[in-house]
Design a binder for these strands. Structure first.
Length: 367
DNA sequence: AATGTACTCAACCGCACTAGC
DNA sequence: CGCTAGTGCGGTTGAGTACAT
C-alpha cells in the first residue's frame, strides 16, 4: 500500500495556471506568507489547487527575482562545473545562480547544455566503446556508498573525482571540490584520461587525490594533465595506485560498492594496454596544471611518464599540493561558512529564503 | 497548407526526509 | 519508537510550439 496522496486529486485543478490563479496566489503570499503550511494554503487563498502545486508555482514562477530567459556563458560554466562535481543536484546548483530555479536549470541542462557539450566533444569519443553512454545526466556518484560508482559503470564523462572539463582547449573550471566517497580511496591514486592528442579537439580530464585522514577529511586535489602529444589510438583511462598493483584500489573503496570500478579498470583500462602504448614514448613531458579558477592556472611541471614510475608522478604532483590545498581550503571554507548560516538560508544564496537545507546538510556531512 | 517530428518547459509524480505527536 | 503529515527534491511527462518535410 502506497502512501496517502497529499490532496484529493479529484477535487483539485491541475494543469497550467491561469493568470487569475497566479494573481490570487501571489497576493495571498505577499500578504500572509506561506504560513509554513503549503497544504492548507490553497484553501485559505481560495485556490482549487494542491498545496504542492502552489508551492511549485510560487517557487518556480511567481516569487520575486526569478530570472527567465537565456542562460549566460558564465552560468553555463557554473552549471557544468557543479554538475561535474556534485551531479544532478539541481537545487544546490540553483543556489549558485541567483534568480534561477532548480527546475529551470534541470530543464536547461537536459534540453540544451548537455547537447551543447556533447556537440563539442570529438567524434571519436562519442563513438568510442569507452563511452558507450555519455552519461552527462548520471547522478553524483557520492550520494551514497551504494551507488558510488554509478557513473563509473556508465563510463561517464564525469566519472569519479573528475572536476575539469577541457573542451577545445577552453578549460571549464571547477567551482567545488568533489564529495569524497566514504571510506577513502587509495592515497596514491592517480587517474587521468588521455585522449588522442592528434585530435586538436582533445578532451582531457584528470585529477590527483590525496587522502590524508580517513576519519575526518579527504584532500582531493583536482588538476588537469594537459597532455601535450599523446599518441594514443583511443581514449584511455589510467588507473594508478603507486605500483602496488592491487586491483580496485585505484580509487574509491572496494569494500563498499567499489568493485565495479575495479572491473572497469581491469577490463577496459588495463595496465598492459597503457604500458604497451606508452612504452616507446618520451619519459618525461611537460604538463600543465589548471584548476580552481585563476589561482593555479597554467602551472607547468615535469612529470615522469613511465608507467612504472607513477609513484614518482604522484610525488611530483605533490610539489604543488600545498598551493592546491589552500585553494581547496578556500572553497571548503566557503562551504563551511554557508553551512553555519541559519537554517532558513540556502546554500550560497542569501536571497533565497524559500528553500531549505537538505542538500546543504549533505555537503556539510561529507566535508 | 497539411502533416509529422523535435523541442521546450511548466507541471506532475513519487520518494526521502523531518518534525511533531 | 512508530506513525503521520508536510516538505523538498530529482526524474519524468505531456501540452504547446517551432521547425521540417
Amino acid at each position: 500500500m502506497g502512501r496517502a496522496p497529499c490532496c484529493d486529486k479529484d477535487n483539485v485543478k491541475r494543469g497550467p495556471w491561469s493568470p487569475e490563479e497566479d494573481a490570487k496566489l501571489k497576493s495571498f503570499i505577499e500578504k500572509y506568507g506561506t504560513g509554513g503550511n503549503w497544504i492548507a494554503l490553497p484553501q485559505k487563498a481560495g485556490l482549487k489547487r494542491c498545496g504542492k502545486s502552489c508551492r511549485l508555482r510560487w517557487l518556480n514562477y511567481l516569487r520575486p527575482n526569478i530570472k527567465h530567459g537565456e542562460f549566460t556563458d558564465d552560468e553555463d560554466k557554473i552549471i557544468c562545473s557543479l554538475f561535474a562535481s556534485i551531479g544532478s543536484r539541481w537545487s544546490i546548483i540553483a543556489g549558485q545562480l541567483p534568480g534561477r530555479t532548480d527546475n529551470d536549470i534541470k530543464n536547461y541542462w537536459n534540453t540544451k547544455l548537455k547537447k551543447k557539450l556533447l556537440a563539442m566533444l570529438p567524434s571519436f569519443q562519442k563513438k568510442s566503446s569507452f563511452f558507450p553512454s555519455l552519461s552527462l545526466q548520471s547522478p553524483s556518484p557520492y550520494r551514497s556508498s551504494s551507488d558510488q560508482f554509478t557513473m563509473a559503470n556508465n563510463s561517464s564523462l564525469f566519472y569519479g573525482y573528475t572536476n575539469f572539463i577541457n573542451i577545445n582547449n577552453n578549460l571549464t573550471h571547477l567551482s567545488l571540490p568533489p564529495q569524497p566517497p566514504p571510506p577513502g580511496p587509495d592515497p596514491n591514486s592517480l587517474i587521468g584520461l588521455l585522449t588522442n592528442g592528434n585530435n586538436e579537439n582533445g578532451f582531457y580530464l584528470g585529477f590527483q587525490e590525496n587522502h590524508h585522514d580517513h576519519q575526518s577529511m579527504y584532500n582531493i586535489t583536482p588538476m588537469e594533465y594537459h597532455y601535450p602529444t599523446p599518441d594514443l589510438k583511443e581514449p584511455m583511462l589510467m588507473f594508478g595506485n603507486g605500483g602496488e598493483g592491487h586491483e580496485g584500489s585505484a580509487t574509491g573503496s572496494s569494500s563498499e560498492g567499489g568493485s565495479s570500478l575495479s572491473q572497469i579498470s581491469h577490463e577496459n583500462f588495463s595496465k598492459d594496454r597503457y604500458q604497451n602504448q606508452q612504452h616507446n614514448q618520451i619519459k618525461q613531458e611537460e604538463y600543465t596544471i589548471q584548476g580552481f579558477g585563476d589561482h593555479i592556472h597554467n602551472r607547468s611541471f615535469i612529470v615522469n611518464d613511465d608507467y612504472n614510475d607513477q609513484k614518482q608522478n604522484v610525488y611530483n604532483l605533490k610539489n604543488y599540493e600545498s598551493q592546491l590545498h589552500s585553494d581547496i581550503e578556500e572553497v571548503k571554507q566557503l562551504i563551511g561558512n554557508t553551512n553555519n548560516r541559519s537554517s532558513n538560508s540556502y546554500l550560497f544564496n542569501d536571497d533565497d529564503e524559500y528553500k531549505t537545507t537538505d542538500d546543504r546538510r549533505e555537503i556539510c556531512y561529507h566535508y
